[in-house]
Amino acid sequence: MKVFQTIIAVVLGALLIYAEADFPAWASSKSPANAGELSQYYIKNIYDETLVPNMVTAVLADYRGYDTLFETVVVFTAGLAIFAILGTGVMREKKTAVPAPKRIYSEPPFDLIVRISTRMLVPVIQLFALYVLAHGHHSPGGGFQGGVILAASFIMLELSSDLRAEAAKLTHRMSIWLGIIGIVIYAGWGTLSLFFGGHFLDYDMLQALFPLDPLMARSHSMLIVEVGVAFTVSSIMLLIFRQLVSGGYSIPDKQA
């Protein structure tokens, strides 16, 4: 059986390598991806239309903003799915092959070195996360990257001490609420421009709301939707970590 599978994999690889002969050479400017009209338009015109030096953030949050909105919704839905699979106390009543453990954690591990170093590092990590979020316009960064770093700081707090005590400080309900708030910020900002006569997520029209010209309105709106994305991504990543690590038992019994 394994031989059969290996043969399939090797045949697939050989077919792909045979198809490689027609691919354009690496890093050529004449390849269809690089010489296409859309790519050239973006490279030439992004600064003139949005005043944002980082082309990737401009395309992600403005030109393809609809896509990014639903990417955020996908992250939120994945968090909800994990919560529904693992975290609602469903596993405790069912008769299962592996019985539910009676005691999840022993004494919360108190280690002075870990406590002190976590205490030193977490504020710096959170500040760096906010820096990455705010500098998405000028350097690689933006909402997703900043949100993940922010989640990493909370995960570090939970790893270094008692998971249940830390989970009680930022409860599951609060995590899901923060995820919802992020999506509401993003979709709400897009809906706001409907009131001014533009399309959904058309940031040009928001110049009537603030005394700005359309280019700066687009640049600032990108920052606001990235903040929404960071809310959702950070809280859902934390939720995913908590559920996976504890097998769904990070909620105390009375909340389940």
Partner: peptide
């Protein structure tokens, strides 16, 4: 070319979410 970078940002995030599920 910025376009593949943008598409792959979305792909990475969605991949992480489905990996979690």
């Amino acid at each position: 070319n910025p376009l593949p970078h943008v598409l792959m940002l979305t792909a990475i995030v969605v991949g992480v979410a489905t990996l979690g599920v």
